[in-house]
């Protein structure tokens, strides 16, 4: 048998690649972002003077900053709530012994598989003037024209595309959760007179899915905060910045406007928001049931 001490050396060896890469590509950048947010830098200059909180102040003074925060909140809430609700609905449907249910699963999961670039392009076309949605809405006597070029419709439209893409993913997560609920519980419930579907869902299914829901909410929040490609491809953050969310704004500040200090400040803000989520994430992944099976 290998001795305790030697075993530690082995452990260190096994962990070295992952630890070093994680340190270099996650923790060092996080520290660097916080450092850079307190310095002025145009991305080119060799000097980065210390400016304290001035970059944050400049960021808050940007006339579009309020709009960016508003867009981000609308986008995150607007994508997370419906994609989870629809995902749950799909899971309940696909969990029944209905014909074509595997077809249903496959079809609703398919959007998750294609890239945001592909899906974004397809939706740009479907939302163009004379495109699919223009026609469909025409039946209702309403001609919205080009959806992504309209400041009132662009954000809801990007949200719709994003929901379409993510609902199937949530369905998979919920299906796994549903399969852990023993059938006997429903049968016992039926004895107690809980027969109608809604009551059954409210009193049995939903409470037993609480753990799944917790995870689904967190993972969806993470995904939504990250959404960049869809916005880049569909709207470039426009029109009139109506689809500029925080991550898009960070990119724009750094690479288009060369305001790396402000971009770092905006990144630091986002970092603080997601750190709050991290606590929940860590608690979930370290819970008892994951320790040993």
């Amino acid at each position: 048998m290998v001795g305790q001490r030697r075993l530690r050396w082995w452990a260190a060896l096994f962990l070295a690649p992952a630890v070093i890469l994680t340190a270099v590509f996650f923790y060092y950048p996080m520290a660097y972002i916080l450092w850079l947010s307190m310095h002025h830098w145009n991305g080119l200059s060799p000097v980065k003077p210390f400016t304290g909180l001035a970059e944050f102040r400049h960021l808050f003074q940007q006339p579009i900053f309020g709009l960016v925060i508003r867009n981000t909140v609308i986008f995150v809430v607007g994508t997370v709530v419906p994609s989870i609700t629809i995902g749950l609905g799909l899971a309940l449907l696909a969990n029944r012994r209905l014909p074509f249910r595997s077809f249903l699963r496959g079809v609703s999961f398919a959007p998750y598989l294609v890239s945001f670039v592909s899906a974004g392009l397809a939706w740009v076309w479907m939302g163009s003037s004379g495109g699919l949605f223009d026609h469909l809405m025409g039946f209702l006597g309403f001609h919205p024209g080009n959806l992504v070029d309209n400041p009132s419709y662009a954000l809801p439209y990007v949200i719709a595309m994003y929901t379409w893409k993510m609902a199937g993913y949530n369905m998979v997560l919920y299906l796994a959760g549903l399969q852990t609920i023993p059938r006997e519980i429903y049968e016992a419930g039926a004895i107690d007179g809980l027969q109608d579907g809604w009551t059954q869902f409210r009193t049995i299914t939903w409470p037993l899915l609480a753990e799944s829901t917790f995870f689904v909410v967190i993972i969806n929040l993470i995904f939504s905060f990250r959404a960049f490609s869809a916005i880049y491809v569909m709207t470039n953050g426009g029109p009139v910045n109506s689809t500029t969310t925080l991550v898009y704004y960070i990119w724009n500040l750094a690479f288009v406007q060369n305001s790396w200090g402000q971009a770092a400040a905006a990144s630091a803000l986002l970092l603080i928001v997601v750190l709050a989520l991290t606590i929940g994430m860590v608690r979930y992944f370290t819970k008892e049931s994951f320790r040993a099976s």
Binding site: N42, P63, I64, P151, G238, P239, V240, N241, N252, V256, Q257, N258, S259
Partner: peptide
């Protein structure tokens, strides 16, 4: 000039804000 990209972005926002009636 070095600040041109930012100035251009600001003018771009002004054009959009006006033409979209904001």
């Amino acid at each position: 000039i070095p600040a041109y990209p930012q100035i251009s972005a600001d003018i771009g926002n002004a054009i959009e804000n006006t033409l979209y009636g904001r």
